[in-house]
Design a protein around this nucleic acid. Structure first.
Lengths: 195, 195
DNA sequence: GTCTATATAGCGATAGAC
DNA sequence: GTCTATCGCTATATAGAC
């Protein structure tokens, strides 16, 4: 069970080495989830010993929380930068969509978000991820000033993209799946040069 | 790692007792995922001993695959029944939405789907869930005959609902979250008697 | 068909050397 | 700051009794 960890602890500055471990942890947690990832795999990916990973962060739980908070902030910062880039209100959805595309490109962040969102029944992290989710929705509604319907539809498209990323459908060559990837294009409309 | 298991094995008929274990397993896997769930918790929930759970299905993996296949079929059957209930083509989205609402009510099935969809990086189950996802999309496109855009938007709304379910946001009293739950209403429009 | 007892392995965490 | 050695727990799986 993930314990209550002070945010200040999660924001403690890290040595370059520790940052490499966080990076490795993000990949492992994004791919296999909190329960499925192992500190050993994280250590091997980072090129350090397993006990050192635990030593650096106190526990697997605290390392996970740091990764999770980082992913959440990446999403919020991305939207806030997009919102700050224009004076239009409501912010055009294509502006927000283009910002989201940046998150899609790194891949890991959104896959980690999917893992977090599947932990609603976890006693400790459940309340946290619920609050985070509502926080993102709040940004769309009150900072980007999207209507109720627009915010919901935008969020829904985001959730589909997240699922496609988590599933790994963005890397298949399946012809039938190509049309499903439409939302992943950088902007709403693509030129479609050939036809 | 989840091994290759013949479908015939997953369809072997079960004794009433074994069905109770499957039911318990579905709940545990839906809440905590494949890695996070334990055969011990499944056994306790079903009121049997832990070794008996393993004995009944051979391994935790095979039990999970049975639960996963069951959830996938529940989704497909639900859509196919809705499609068969009308001659209109494309099928009206409200008809499909109402059918989806039945799945929302039991809760477990869609939470299990979310867990499965977060296992794209699993060597054995990844390819399976990718195929299943495309199968559902195929039903929307070619059996319900939704347009590319309609199918995608409908699927996107479904993914948002799934996330809200997995997060447990359907059970909160948070006033700011209420408007987000709009899609969970039985039909598109609600009377809203009070205002 | 179902249990108790137990083997076996994997993993997170600790101790202590360098 | 980082490693090696290792502990102790937990979890899956097996053996065998009833």
């Amino acid at each position: 069970m993930i314990q209550d960890t002070a945010v200040s602890d999660l924001e403690r500055p890290l040595t370059p080495r520790a940052l490499e471990v966080v990076s490795a942890a993000r990949e492992e947690f994004a791919a296999f989830g909190y329960a499925g990832a192992t500190t050993d795999a994280i250590a091997r990916r980072a090129g350090v010993s397993q006990p050192y990973v635990v030593r650096l962060f106190g526990s697997k739980e605290r390392l996970f929380l740091r990764c999770a908070l980082e992913a959440h902030r990446a999403v919020m910062d991305t939207f806030r930068q997009a919102i700050a880039s224009t004076d239009e209100r409501p912010v055009r959805e294509s502006v927000l969509g283009a910002a989201y595309h940046d998150l899609v490109e790194d891949g890991t962040t959104l896959k980690l978000i999917v893992q977090q969102n599947s932990m609603g029944d976890d006693k400790a992290i459940g309340p946290v991820v619920r609050a985070w989710f509502l926080e993102v929705y709040g940004i769309l509604r009150h900072e980007a000033q999207l209507s109720e319907v627009s915010a919901r539809e935008f969020l829904a498209r985001g959730m589909l993209i997240n699922q496609l990323l988590a599933l790994g459908l963005t890397e298949t060559e399946d012809p039938g799946s190509k049309e499903l990837l439409h939302y992943l294009a950088p902007t709403g409309e693509r030129p479609a040069p050939g036809r």
